[in-house]
Design a protein around this nucleic acid. Structure first.
Lengths: 153, 153
DNA sequence: GCGAATCGTAACATACGGTGTTACATGAAA
DNA sequence: TTTCATGTAACACCGTATGTTACGATTCGC
């Protein structure tokens, strides 16, 4: 299955934005993500419509985070992206009047719905602030290691 | 996202097979699923290689379930299909040496892994026998309703 | 043995969605 | 006014699930 990586992309972008004082342009974010500025604008547009980020046009414009990092969860981002479904598996409603199909769909849907509920709950517990903190920890760890081995911090 | 409906398909097929004494041909199953015989053979081939069903060639050949219905779970079927991933969302490893990307991937992977574990556990608790029973209940319910309203049972 | 039926599989076509790219209009600041 | 940036449409590209055709291999009934 081809996976939707937009959630990963916006997380990556938001963490870079969190490290920056000034707004970041779609071009700058595209360089961070190794992708295209239009793709960034297209994807970040979902977050803007959800009120999670804001964008300004013109010189000194760009993208900035509109809320405190501790108030934005993975769940918020996932919902903002309007992803049609979390799962790569689903049922085919080719014969909705077939009782066999109905029994199959009911069983699958119930199981998937439970897993989706858990996933959304867990995603609601992880904030951007948590991720930023994790990043800072990794950064400090690498800096210390680089210092030991003689590399740049 | 385009969803993989093979699990739903094989469930549908297996329940029809469970209702039949004689082996069912890929053509007959294809009619049940409103699809193509080759698609049926292709998909059921995964179950055959996993030892869940058996197929016979030649006249009076076809497909039959190789194990007791109560010993086959949704988990068995899912694993037999060798689906690359349950989720339609994932991370893009465009910059694996980027610490931001690493922090994002770690957070996403941990959350998704937990949800996947729950899903597989739940799928391991649902057997084909359960589904067949649910189908029988729906069938009885519709039959009773049809009798009341004057339709065929 | 012969022919019909069936599976096994390769090869190709089709549909669809995520992603990348170009182009251009809109808006804001120097 | 010029420049820079977003907003968005339009299209190309690619990978994957699915559908289709074709043909070889195997088994049963005659």
């Amino acid at each position: 299955m081809k996976r939707d990586s937009r959630l990963s992309s916006v997380l990556h972008a938001l963490l870079h934005m969190a490290q920056s004082d000034a707004p970041m342009t779609s071009g700058a974010l595209a360089r961070c993500l190794a992708t295209n500025p239009v793709v960034v604008r297209r994807t970040m547009g979902f977050l803007r419509r959800a009120g999670l980020v804001a964008s300004d046009r013109g010189q000194a414009g760009g993208w900035r985070i509109a809320r405190d990092l501790s108030t934005i969860t993975l769940r918020d981002l996932h919902l903002a992206l309007e992803e049609p479904g979390i799962f790569a598996i689903g049922h085919r409603n080719a014969a909705p009047d077939c009782l066999v199909e109905q029994a199959v769909n009911a069983a699958l849907d119930a199981t998937l719905a439970e897993a989706e509920a858990l996933l959304l709950r867990r995603m609601g517990e992880v904030t951007l602030a948590d991720l930023a903190e994790d990043f800072a920890r990794r950064h400090a760890s690498r800096s210390a290691h680089d210092k030991e081995t003689g590399h740049d911090a």
